[in-house]
Amino acid sequence: MKRKARISEHLTNGLNPMHLEVTDESHMHNVPEGAESHFKVLAVSEVFAGEKLIDRHRRVNALVRDELAGGLHALAIHAWTPQEWFDKGGGAAPTSPECLGGSKQTG
């Protein structure tokens, strides 16, 4: 099973999200083709209600801890309640910034 599918499965089981996007952004970074090392997550779930942002991120990180220990290098997390998602227009996660790591870094 590919890393994207495993991340989706862990988050679906742990968050019961009303909306979930898992995007492999590895191609935007200085990594070998097929690295599956950089991902972005938009998870919309009632479980985030009343939680601070740091606690939401901790919850998501705990659900994918095996992936983080096994080569997942970066995870951009957008963890919203359904109301926050609707307030933001119910659209996609924000665009990730350009990578500045490795050989892509400017002088």
Rank of each mutant, 00 (worst) to 15 (best):
1 M>R: 07
1 M>D: 07
1 M>Q: 04
3 R>A: 10
3 R>T: 12
4 K>C: 01
4 K>E: 04
4 K>G: 04
5 A>Y: 05
5 A>K: 10
5 A>W: 04
6 R>L: 13
7 I>V: 02
7 I>L: 06
7 I>A: 00
9 E>L: 12
9 E>K: 11
9 E>I: 03
10 H>E: 09
10 H>I: 01
11 L>T: 01
11 L>D: 00
12 T>V: 06
12 T>Q: 09
13 N>F: 05
13 N>Q: 15
13 N>T: 12
15 L>W: 06
15 L>D: 08
15 L>T: 05
16 N>I: 05
18 M>R: 13
18 M>K: 14
19 H>I: 13
19 H>V: 14
20 L>R: 01
21 E>P: 01
21 E>L: 03
21 E>N: 04
22 V>F: 00
22 V>E: 04
23 T>M: 04
24 D>R: 00
25 E>A: 05
25 E>I: 00
26 S>R: 03
26 S>E: 05
27 H>E: 12
27 H>S: 13
27 H>T: 11
27 H>K: 14
27 H>L: 14
28 M>E: 10
29 H>T: 12
30 N>S: 13
31 V>I: 10
32 P>R: 07
32 P>K: 07
33 E>P: 12
33 E>Q: 06
33 E>S: 11
34 G>H: 03
35 A>D: 00
35 A>G: 02
35 A>E: 02
37 S>T: 08
38 H>C: 01
39 F>K: 03
39 F>Y: 09
40 K>W: 01
41 V>W: 03
42 L>W: 01
43 A>K: 00
43 A>L: 00
43 A>F: 00
45 S>W: 04
45 S>R: 08
46 E>L: 13
47 V>R: 14
47 V>A: 08
47 V>S: 10
48 F>W: 08
49 A>P: 05
50 G>S: 02
50 G>R: 09
53 L>V: 15
53 L>P: 10
54 I>E: 12
54 I>N: 12
55 D>W: 08
56 R>I: 02
56 R>S: 07
56 R>A: 10
57 H>N: 06
57 H>R: 03
58 R>Q: 07
60 V>G: 05
60 V>I: 13
63 L>Q: 02
63 L>V: 00
64 V>H: 01
64 V>D: 01
65 R>F: 13
66 D>W: 05
66 D>E: 14
67 E>D: 15
67 E>C: 04
67 E>V: 06
68 L>W: 10
69 A>T: 12
70 G>F: 06
70 G>E: 13
71 G>E: 02
71 G>L: 03
71 G>W: 02
71 G>S: 03
71 G>Q: 11
73 H>Q: 05
74 A>Y: 08
74 A>E: 06
75 L>I: 07
75 L>K: 07
76 A>H: 08
77 I>Y: 03
78 H>R: 09
78 H>A: 09
81 T>F: 02
81 T>C: 08
85 W>P: 05
86 F>E: 15
86 F>Q: 14
86 F>V: 15
87 D>Y: 14
87 D>A: 14
89 G>D: 12
89 G>Y: 10
90 G>P: 04
90 G>K: 11
91 G>H: 06
92 A>C: 13
93 A>W: 08
94 P>V: 09
94 P>D: 10
95 T>H: 01
95 T>P: 00
96 S>H: 06
97 P>L: 15
97 P>S: 15
97 P>N: 11
98 E>L: 14
98 E>I: 13
99 C>N: 04
100 L>Y: 12
101 G>R: 09
101 G>A: 11
101 G>W: 05
104 K>Q: 15
106 T>F: 14
107 G>S: 15
